[in-house]
């Protein structure tokens, strides 16, 4: 019952966050800046064409009406215009790019596998490597290993992802010529080539974050090892592997899970930069193209879609937290 209430309250909270995010983003994108119809109107843009575009896009409605239409489109889909020239955008409709004559979700769907492959692989890599190295550093506190990993982690935190990427390209790609330095092969074409092309991007994107997780894990591990229950576990004669691996690690993972939830947003940002470095056709490329073409519906759609992804993933992380720490379920 309690677990059910916990889950229900988290889902309600998530929906509220999504609603606020859509509202704020919509207001910022559609009402503050220049006229979207003007941008979509094309050349030559006569007064008549402009009025047509405005009506077609629903821009002559009051702003709250436009917002409700947009919101409704996400849930049920929507139709622009009437009659033979109308365009239908199926649910979930995050908007329609009038410049590319495609709905935003389709455009994102084409690019998503690239960004997903990159982000997921990197996330797995950085959590495993960061937590692993952090635990080792804490256990070997004060040794050369500890000092080296700590100094390297400060460097890792400071190095922007594209610098690490370019360094990687330079050393592993051009000088040693061991891995490909760009491009993307779909998983369905060849899983081996897919992974092979992603090795360097994964390493690059994971590097900086792994450094952060190392520092976090190390600090948390040191604190945990000083706790009474660890001493009790040791005094009871538990083998060290079980003291560390079962009793201490669970406590160490709590802040890691929290930070991981927060980092999902910047993971997406990092993926966008990494894609640019390795010329991969992912969401980042779509976004930059949309910026250069001033494709407002696509920009709004991309931003909202990214926000939705992060909020939903965060809700999952929250539920994981509840599973990991029984205390969290009481609040």
């Amino acid at each position: 019952m309690r677990a059910l209430k916990f889950t229900a309250s988290r889902i309600a909270g998530t929906l509220l966050v999504l609603l606020v995010v859509v509202f704020v983003t919509y207001v910022v994108f559609y009402l503050v800046p220049s006229d979207p119809a003007q941008l979509a109107c094309g050349r030559p843009c006569t007064e008549q064409n402009l009025a047509l575009a405005r009506e077609f896009m629903g821009l002559d409605d009051p702003w709250w009406r436009q917002f409700l239409d947009y919101l409704g489109g996400i849930v049920t889909g929507r139709t622009f215009g009437v009659g033979a020239t109308s365009i239908h955008c199926g649910a979930p409709c995050f908007g329609y790019s009038f410049q590319q004559n495609t709905d935003v979700v389709t455009l994102i769907g084409e690019r998503l596998p690239v960004t997903f492959s990159l982000a997921l692989g990197a996330a797995v890599l950085w959590v495993v490597a960061g937590v692993g190295a952090g635990v080792l550093a804490a256990l070997r506190r004060g040794t050369a290993w500890d000092r080296i990993t700590l100094a390297a982690s400060v460097a890792g935190v400071s190095a922007p992802v594209y610098l690490v990427g370019l360094l990687g390209i330079l050393v592993l790609g051009f000088t040693l010529d061991v891995v490909p330095v760009g491009g993307y092969v779909p998983f369905t074409d060849s899983p081996v080539d897919w992974a092979w092309h992603l090795v360097l991007p994964w390493l690059v994107l994971a590097f900086a974050q792994a450094a952060l997780y190392l520092r976090l894990t190390r600090a948390q591990m040191l604190e945990t090892l000083g706790e009474d229950y660890i001493r009790t576990a040791r005094a009871n004669g538990l083998p060290e592997s079980s003291v560390i691996g079962k009793h201490a690690l669970r406590n160490v993972l709590l802040p890691v899970v929290t930070v991981f939830g927060i980092d999902l947003g910047s993971l997406l940002g990092g993926a966008v930069i990494t894609e640019r470095v390795f010329s991969m056709p992912g969401l980042g490329g779509l976004l930059i193209d949309a910026v250069n073409q001033r494709d407002l519906p696509l920009l709004l759609g991309c931003t909202l879609f990214a926000a939705f992804l992060v909020v939903l993933a965060n809700a999952l992380v929250d539920l994981c937290y509840g599973a990991l720490d029984p205390r969290a379920r009481l609040t």
Partner: peptide, 20 residues
């Protein structure tokens, strides 16, 4: 909490295009 988890880089990229 919402701000901390928000994909702000993507928002900033997009904002650069819509601001006059």
């Amino acid at each position: 909490d919402v701000f901390l988890g928000f994909p702000y880089l993507i928002f900033m990229i997009a904002l650069g295009a819509v601001v006059p």
